[in-house]
């Protein structure tokens, strides 16, 4: 029986006045469908609750100024936010700066590379793609350790430059995936048309392709930037007292000192950033892009 039925509404078989031979079917069907629908609705609601609960807890706790979520309705305050120490704000500002520069570098590298790969139809395209995507395939903890091994002798660990370079590697992989897909969506005929009208191939790229890609690139930049903001395991090893991204700061505080109200408040701020990002993307391109597998992110 089709107990898992849920796309059809129960009304579908409402016209069951036919009382002939197969008459016992509709009744069973309707029950099966109803049970299926109830089970499915319950499942969806439960999953939503489970997914939303932890985030809601962080936000609620941040307004209660304590180290736990209290059941009492009073005690709402902004004290936790006021208690956020300057080193948190410094860490957040540090993260934003390095995420920003890493995003810019990644796009500046990825756009020409994607164009060369897609338009050149190079023999080694698969190989190059795989190579650039390598940082994505390697677990970030391994890449972090590897970067540490390289950066220590170069004096790049525990520095803004080091963090930015590390973020650039991982952003580049993401940016190339985006730009390759975007570039594939621009018909080559447009460039050919520009070339027949006298443009060089590079001029055709800058005057025809880039303007067409611009909206897509903006979205890609937004994704890469937010992803950079929350990167943790890659940066854990090369971070230090002089270069502390916010995620590492929050991590070391919970490990050293336990759950602090101001850390919860800072976590809540990161939640707001996430919400703002989604609102922005949803308003510009609609929610469907969020579901794409291109955004599969690693912890």
């Amino acid at each position: 029986m089709t107990g898992g039925e849920f796309q059809e509404s129960g009304k579908a078989f409402g016209g069951s006045r036919g009382t002939r031979t197969r008459a016992n079917l509709p009744g069973r069907f309707r029950t099966g469908i109803r049970i299926g629908r109830i089970a499915l609705t319950a499942y969806v609601l439960l999953m939503l609750a489970l997914l939303a609960l932890p985030i809601v807890l962080v936000v609620v706790a941040s307004f209660q100024g304590g180290m736990e979520v209290a059941s009492r309705p009073d005690g709402w305050s902004l004290s936790a936010y006021e208690a956020i120490p300057t080193n948190y704000w410094d860490a957040l500002w540090f993260t934003i700066r390095s995420a920003f520069w890493a995003t810019i570098c990644a796009l500046v590298l990825a756009v020409p590379a994607a164009w060369g790969l897609v338009r050149g139809n190079l023999r080694e395209r698969r190989f190059v793609s795989a190579l650039v995507l390598l940082p994505d395939a390697v677990p970030s903890i391994t890449l972090g350790i590897a970067l540490l091994a390289l950066f220590v002798p170069l004096g790049l660990s525990n520095s803004f430059a080091g963090i930015t370079v590390a973020l650039t590697v991982i952003s580049l992989a993401m940016a190339l995936r985006f730009t390759e897909a975007l570039m594939g969506g621009v018909p080559e005929e447009l460039e050919q048309a520009a070339v027949t009208m006298g443009a060089s191939r590079v001029t055709a790229l800058t005057t025809v392709v880039l303007p067409l890609l611009a909206p897509g690139l903006a979205i890609a930049a937004l994704f890469v930037f937010v992803h950079n903001l929350v990167t943790f395991e890659l940066l854990l090893f090369i971070a230090g007292p002089r270069a502390t991204p916010i995620s590492v700061q929050l991590f070391s505080d919970i490990v050293d000192r336990g759950v602090l109200p101001q850390a919860i408040a800072m976590s809540a701020i990161l939640v707001y950033v996430g919400i703002a990002f989604h609102t922005l993307v949803a308003m510009t391109v609609g929610a469907r892009y969020l579901a794409g597998s291109a955004m599969a992110r690693k912890g």
């Binding site: 932890p54 985030i55 919970i254 919860i264 912890g299």
Partner: peptide
């Protein structure tokens, strides 16, 4: 999808650290 996907995607845009904080609170 248009209602739920943004909701579900928010946890993806958070550091694991925040998830850790949430788990402690929970």
């Amino acid at each position: 999808r248009s209602i739920l996907v943004p909701m579900i995607s928010i946890p993806r845009m958070l550091p694991f650290v925040v998830v850790g904080y949430a788990m402690v609170l929970l």
